[in-house]
Amino acid sequence: MSERMLRDKILPVLSAMSMLLAIGMIIFYLPDMKGAMGETLDMSFRIFYFHMPIAITSYLAFTVVFVSSILFLRTGKYSYDILSRSAAEVGVIFAFLVLVTGSIWAKATWGWYWVWEPRLTTSLALFLVYVAYIVLRQAVDGADKRARLASVFGILGFISVPLSFLSIRLWRSAHPLMFGDTSGSSGGGLEGTSLQLTLLVNVIAFVLLFITLVVYKMQNEMMEERADEIRASLD
């Protein structure tokens, strides 16, 4: 089986199938959730099974940006830069989806679209940092310099995110009465096997989706570079 086969056929089919399975499990397989009072919670909590895997994937994306940025500065190989920018662009979409799903969930649970909850706010910081990363890429002329400066920013951004988490957690603990202690993930119902299984399948599905998108994006970028080279050699 050639690498090309794997890339063009297997990967998208695999991620589409796992995605279908993951969605199917959320809708049909998950049992109804009971709240603390024994009442049946509405469907809104099910968004958590999208929310958390997407969040994990967005963190994964920016870990990839961080590592490949360091590798680019160390080796100067452009393939690392292509990987950084592909992972960043796909990652930004995931980070945005974290905010959207998080807000919907927050609205259903607390009645607000936005809650200054450490994890959600950290995702906001992450999103802003990597939007800035993409803005920077667009502002710099010259492939060499763009790759170099973006790599530096990719490293700084990755370091700032956990610090953001720490500072937001500190801040929230200073105002504990605003929303009460509801920032836990899903009300303690996660021990059930069916829930864990659904979550696991969803995480795998989203990571696969991420890998597929990054691989396609990288292919695109490489073709673009190739086209630029040909264009340059023509004149």
Binding site: A125, L128, V129, V131, A132, L156, G157, S160, L163, S164, L166, S167, I168, L170, W171
Partner: peptide, 10 residues
């Protein structure tokens, strides 16, 4: 601004 957020908050 996104990078100094963790210093700004405390």
């Amino acid at each position: 601004l996104p990078l100094v957020l963790p210093a700004l908050i405390p």
